[in-house]
Amino acid sequence: MALGLFLAVAALFSSGCGDLSNDELNRGVESLSALAAQGQLVASGVARDATKSTYARVMSRTLGEEAEHEAEKLADATLEEAETEDQRHAAVAVAGEISGLLSELQTYPGDEHHGALVQKHLEEAQEKADAIVAQLSGDAP
């Protein structure tokens, strides 16, 4: 019984989700904002010379791959609401930006100067992601 239940749930999770709804697009962009925030914390450790370079490198790589995956997901999906096309494009660009910055951190995990720069740029990328979320939820000025 437990095995059957497990397989049923596993099948459900691997079955794909169809078109991208506004909510799902919103959640995807929120994930980008969260990745940028996490990246800033890793970059802050590099900037303050307060981390281990292997840790910074592996974390940057992992987070960068997640941003890339999010970008692919957003770029490939068909939108349920065509009027959010601009936000989708902007989100894909932000995802690429975050992924690129994390890749830079991965290359220079022991360089304090690079760490500070990446931290600053990730902060800007997070602001862009938050602005897209605000537009999607109708909270933008």
Binding site: E30, S31, S33, A34, A37, Q38, L41, V42, S44, G45, R48, D49, A50, T51, Y55, V58, M59, T62, L63, E66
Partner: peptide
């Protein structure tokens, strides 16, 4: 707004506090 999805993230607060 961090969403910890990796085990490595668990260690970040301790790095922030004690390097």
């Amino acid at each position: 707004g961090v969403e910890p999805s990796d085990l490595g993230t668990v260690a970040l607060p301790m790095q922030g506090a004690f390097g």
